[in-house]
Design a protein around this nucleic acid. Structure first.
Lengths: 156, 156
DNA sequence: GCTTGACCTCAACGAAAGTTGAGGTTCTAG
DNA sequence: CTAGAACCTCAACTTTCGTTGAGGTCAAGC
């Protein structure tokens, strides 16, 4: 067993890469962006604290949720001392991100429902269909069945 | 009422832009990519068939579903004569895209479930947590509680 | 006839999230 | 001690989906 390796208190970039599943180039990139940080050895090589592993995992999770790196960065930067999130921090962040995730799921479901309606709608789905009419603010140009008129034209 | 405008048999790029809600620059772009096409007037201005309105709407819908333009292009190009989709074409395309949409929703829901589990998991969510362990193919390196060992280390 | 708005092309830029490559150093194992 | 793996920096490139700007033409109203 490789027990020794797991117990090292610092990680080289290659180790962090292997253990996090994130490419070395991406870790360099994250560091340039200020998402993670390292100290340097006398030979100028990066050494990461073990907590960085948590930090990287958190970053990837947030990315999967669809949070852009810039936002993740802001969220992490807002923590005191730029520390790697502790339990409480994580709860706060994850609640927020989960809410965003919920919202995105909701939107996609709405889209799917509209889509399903449209598949059989008989006008190639581009008439009287919520999907094809996102852009006109519907009613901005006075009352009346404007949409129908437009749609008839669109369907010509 | 502007009935005349709606009945014109061809659209300028500005008209197409207004009626589709897509910027002129984007329409130019779509045309460069081969997603739509136009004839030219004697003065070298674009004139679009009314069907292009349907085509653009379809493109935007597919984009909202998350289909990259290149894929949309392939799908449209696969139609006979590169025609704008008719009812049957649309049904085929939309069924396929809806399936992708379903899959994306499924993945996000899975992610949310994992996420929810993790929020209170007591280890900053990066131990024994599905989220943080996506990358190791779990078991590739022999049997046993490898994940736990790793995770203990990760959580140190 | 002139002005103004819509249109044209082509090239460059922009953000996001990295990857790739060149050229050079350091670490580790035999 | 030396080969090769792993590391370093910096710049340039990639992809997607367009937008912006410069420089020039066309069309319509007064």
């Amino acid at each position: 067993m490789d027990t020794v390796a797991w117990n090292k208190s610092e990680l080289s970039v290659g180790e962090l890469s292997q253990r996090s599943g994130v490419a070395v180039s991406a870790l360099h990139f994250y560091e340039r962006q200020g998402l993670i940080s390292s100290r340097r050895t006398s030979g100028n090589q990066r050494r990461y604290k073990r907590a960085t592993l948590r930090r990287v995992a958190l970053i990837r999770i947030a990315q999967r949720v669809g949070i852009p790196l810039a936002d993740i960065n802001r969220a992490l930067a807002s923590l005191p001392d730029g520390r790697t999130p502790n339990q409480e921090d994580w709860e706060r962040l994850s609640m927020r991100w989960r809410a965003e995730l919920d919202e995105r799921i909701r939107q996609l479901q709405q889209l799917r429902d509209d889509f399903t309606d449209c598949i059989g709608c008989g006008c190639l789905s581009l008439r009287r269909c919520a999907l094809a009419n996102m852009h006109d603010a519907l009613g901005e140009h006075g009352p009346g069945p404007r949409r129908l008129i437009e749609d008839e034209a669109a369907c010509g």
